[in-house]
Design a protein around this nucleic acid. Structure first.
Lengths: 141, 141
DNA sequence: ATTTGTGCAAATCGTTTGCATCTGA
DNA sequence: TCAGATGCAAACGATTTGCACAAAT
């Protein structure tokens, strides 16, 4: 991008986020993280993020976008969601919550976990530890 | 199983299942349906089914396996599940139920729907109709 | 100076498609 | 007969990988 290396407030935060996660804050990771975390929570595909980066004149390759998304996910900055086998989404909301999935548009919407009550889970065989519980409500729209 | 074109009882049933669904019971579809529905409920990937068919000396192409799986799914004989974006599973249990997903092995196990209680769902925007609710409990094993 | 990313293009993997050929009703 | 199925191989789209180059500490 042209000049002003950093946006005023969010810049620092994002940078720290990367550092704290143990990720080297490179130009590209920083730019992508800004796009991802600038505003509220979002659900993005690699392709989408790649396009947004291009529109913002951030020069990154698609491979780098994938690397960044996976690095971020590995460090707990993102959460990966596979709804439809054709592509995955990365969710900036890593807290406990669920999703509406609009089948027609492929759009995702968060459902706060308080709105979903799950009870009487059977014991996972061998006392296996539960990694997480995903609830996906598919709607026709 | 050894050879013999058909297993005794399930053979007829499978044939009728296809007929009732409005699917022409071709050699391949019949053979695949038998593998799928012979015993209790199962979760298979296209590749798996393809291999099982080969082991049973059923001569089908992978494309036909995909066609059959999708045809069966379209007619409600199977249900498709996408857990992991790398490949989909087809579940012979089309009733209302949920899943344990063993991350290490990629194995799926049913959870009867009575064991999971979901409450207080937010209204889907625009009164959109709910197609289905998937609950996936990921466990580390 | 070292180590860790990045870009590019080629490679992979699951899945789909086009089309000529078969087959069940 | 003849619409609907199948097989094959090529086409696809999302993701990954290999490797030379660049940048962060």
């Amino acid at each position: 991008m042209r000049n002003k290396k950093t946006s005023p407030l969010s810049g620092v935060t994002v940078l720290e986020r990367l550092r704290d996660a143990g990720l080297r804050p490179t130009r590209q990771r920083l730019a992508l993280a800004k796009i991802l975390f600038a505003r509220g929570h979002r659900h993005v595909s690699a392709e989408q993020l790649f396009n947004e980066a291009k529109s913002s004149r951030v020069d990154v390759s698609l491979a780098t976008v994938y690397n960044a998304l996976h690095d971020f996910t590995g460090k707990g900055l993102l959460r990966e969601i596979s709804i439809d086998s054709s592509s995955s989404y990365f969710d900036t909301n890593t807290g406990n919550h669920h999703h509406f999935y609009f089948e027609r548009s492929g759009h995702l919407e968060d459902i706060p976990s308080e709105h979903v009550n799950i009870s009487a889970l059977p014991e996972a065989p061998g006392g296996a530890e539960i990694t997480r519980v995903d609830v996906i409500i598919r709607v026709k729209a």
